[in-house]
Simulated scan of single mutants.
Amino acid sequence: MQPVSSQWILYQRAQRRRSDRPALIFAITSALGWRSAFFVLGGGGVLWFSVWVLSTASPKLEPVWHDDPREGDAPKEKLARIIVQIIRSPRFLPVLVVAVLINPCLYFSVNWLPTYFAQQHGLLPGSQLGWILTAIYLGVGVGNFLCGAGVLTLTRRGRPLAAARRTVFLLATVPLSICAAVPLMRLSPAVFALVAVNIGLGIWVAMYLTMVQDVSAAHVSTALGLLSGCGSLAGAVAMWAVGRVTQHTHSFALPMAAFSVSAVISAIAGWAASRETSLKGGTV
């Protein structure tokens, strides 16, 4: 089994790359054409894999990639029992609420903002829309960074880890609540508002991953799979609902209001999860 911190770091890096990918695609497409996006991203993947293989070949990382031989003879826990333990955790329900609300918000941002700009502001696919979406989606990556940097700064100033996390995700909820007002804005203010929204969303995505660790420190991967699977299912249903609502109302007012409400409810659930958790020695 990988150490908890290693599992979280690897997953967070994958999540950050996934959230930054739309921005890279739009930027490359605008500058070089859509065919170039395939070659540039594919070449970047090959380069990243090569660097990753070389940088992780150190003997010091041997415990990360291989099970401890001393654990080979230990009895294996049944998956059903592990899942029951996770569900019985007092932190499971509030973190589940965060998962089924924050994941749909991320999916909405990635999948529906291009349609929003096309329908509400008349922007057709092209360089202008490409650069707007690039700026917005880069906000998610900035938020990922600010989450860790904010918690680290607060803890170095003497705040307990749990309190630092609460402060960061409560502050991140403020820009997310702005989303409800975006349909009332002109193009330029809407773009700036959505950049702020996605920065807050990036903070929340990273914070959600830290909350998963506190559900089950011994079975982080299983807890992450269970919670994120529920979040993905909720996201799929929510994206279908957004399509139905916008088709009938010809407006994004209701989906964006639901986005803001989801953020507030997630903040309440996150507060409940952090109050239940003893985070001494936790991972930022």
Rank of each mutant, 00 (worst) to 15 (best):
V215N: 03
S216E: 12
M211S: 15
G202W: 00
A217P: 13
L201E: 01
T210N: 10
H219A: 11
W204I: 06
D214M: 12
A236G: 09
L226I: 12
T210R: 04
A206H: 00
A236C: 11
G200W: 00
L226A: 09
G229Y: 02
M207D: 08
S228L: 07
G235I: 05
A236H: 12
L209R: 02
L209N: 07
A206W: 01
A234H: 12
G229N: 06
G200M: 02
A218R: 15
L233S: 13
V205K: 08
V215K: 09
V215Y: 10
M207E: 12
A206F: 01
A217Q: 15
I199S: 02
T210D: 06
N198H: 14
L227R: 00
S228R: 06
V215M: 11
S232T: 10
A238G: 13
A234I: 07
V212A: 08
V205P: 02
L233A: 15
S221H: 05
M211A: 15
S221C: 10
V205S: 08
S228H: 09
C230D: 09
C230S: 14
V237E: 08
G200R: 05
G231E: 06
H219L: 13
T222H: 08
M211G: 04
L209G: 09
L233H: 03
L227I: 08
S221G: 14
C230E: 04
D214V: 06
I203D: 01
V205D: 15
I203Y: 01
L224Y: 07
A223L: 01
A206V: 10
L209Y: 08
M211R: 09
A238P: 06
Y208N: 08
T210L: 14
I199H: 00
I199D: 04
W204L: 15
A196W: 01
A206E: 02
G229Q: 12
G235C: 01
V212C: 11
V215G: 06
H219K: 09
A196C: 05
A218M: 12
D214N: 15
H219Q: 13
A196R: 05
L226F: 14
L227Y: 06
M207Y: 06
N198V: 07
G200A: 12
A217N: 15
H219F: 12
A196Q: 00
S221A: 15
S228V: 11
L227V: 06
G202H: 00
M211Y: 12
S216D: 13
Q213T: 11
L226H: 07
S228W: 05
W204G: 04
G225R: 02
L201Y: 02
D214W: 07
L224K: 08
V197G: 07
A217V: 15
A236S: 15
A238Q: 09
H219G: 03
Q213F: 03
V237S: 13
Q213K: 09
D214T: 14
A206N: 09
A218T: 14
L209A: 14
A236L: 07
S221E: 08
G225N: 04
T210M: 11
V195L: 10
G235H: 00
S232I: 10
V212Q: 03
